[in-house]
Simulated assay, not measured.
Amino acid sequence: MVPSIERRYVQGYEKFLEITNLGSPEQPNYVLFTGTKLPDTGKSWCSDCVEAEPFIETGFADAPQGTILLTVEVGNRAFWKDPNCPFRTNRCTRLKVLPTLVKWRTEKRLEGDQLLNSDLIEMLLSDVDAD
């Protein structure tokens, strides 16, 4: 069975900018912002991110062919909690909470507890923009 989504991963703000500023047709459709995984556990320091992970996986299980999901690990807890964290202040991201799933280059996003609902995730994925 061919996976319908292509997964990409980056760590940190600079790497995130490198990928999203390329302007290539290979831009991600969706960007998931999450806390960085701890090397000793393999799980994010962000308990909300860990809790949401199975719901996100379920939501993306039937994603349309060609979907590109970029998972961005924002950094450690201290970096994220800084009010001047660039993920919080950048006009393209404007993050308030983790996890946050964004339909890239749109205003559409799911934040925090919304990501505990697979139906909401599927709705975000099935939303078709009228051109």
Rank of each mutant, 00 (worst) to 15 (best):
V50A: 03
V74N: 03
L116K: 15
G59N: 10
E6L: 11
Q27A: 14
E51Y: 07
K81V: 00
V74E: 04
D127H: 15
T41R: 00
V2K: 08
K15S: 15
P83W: 08
W80S: 03
W45E: 01
Q114M: 10
V50G: 02
V97P: 00
E111W: 02
L17R: 15
S126W: 06
R8I: 06
R105Q: 14
N29K: 06
Q11P: 01
W80D: 03
D131W: 11
A78H: 03
E57R: 14
K15L: 14
R88N: 06
D119S: 12
E26N: 06
F60I: 07
Q114N: 10
A61V: 05
I68D: 05
L22D: 14
L125H: 07
T89D: 05
M123Y: 12
I68S: 07
D129W: 07
S4F: 03
E73N: 04
D82L: 04
P39K: 09
Q27D: 10
F79R: 01
E73S: 10
Q27S: 13
E51N: 10
V74T: 06
G23D: 07
R105P: 00
T58V: 15
W45M: 02
K103C: 09
T36N: 03
G112C: 02
W45T: 00
K15D: 15
P64C: 02
P99N: 15
F60K: 08
T41S: 09
P83D: 10
L17I: 13
D82S: 06
V128L: 13
S47D: 12
V74S: 06
T20M: 11
L98V: 04
V31I: 15
W45V: 02
F16D: 12
W104V: 03
P83I: 06
Y30Q: 01
Q114T: 00
D129Q: 13
R105A: 12
S4M: 05
E53W: 13
L95D: 04
S126N: 14
R91F: 08
V31D: 04
E51H: 10
L17W: 11
P86T: 11
G66P: 00
A61K: 14
N84W: 04
T58W: 10
I19W: 13
Q65W: 01
E51F: 06
L32R: 09
G12I: 13
W104P: 01
F33K: 04
Q27K: 11
Y30E: 02
T34D: 11
P99T: 14
T89M: 05
V2W: 02
I121T: 07
D131F: 14
E14T: 13
V128Y: 10
N84Y: 07
G112H: 06
D40T: 00
L70V: 05
F33Q: 05
G42V: 01
R105T: 08
L70W: 09
E26I: 00
K43C: 01
L101I: 09
F79Y: 04
R105I: 03
R109G: 05
R7S: 11
L124P: 10
G12Y: 12
G12S: 14
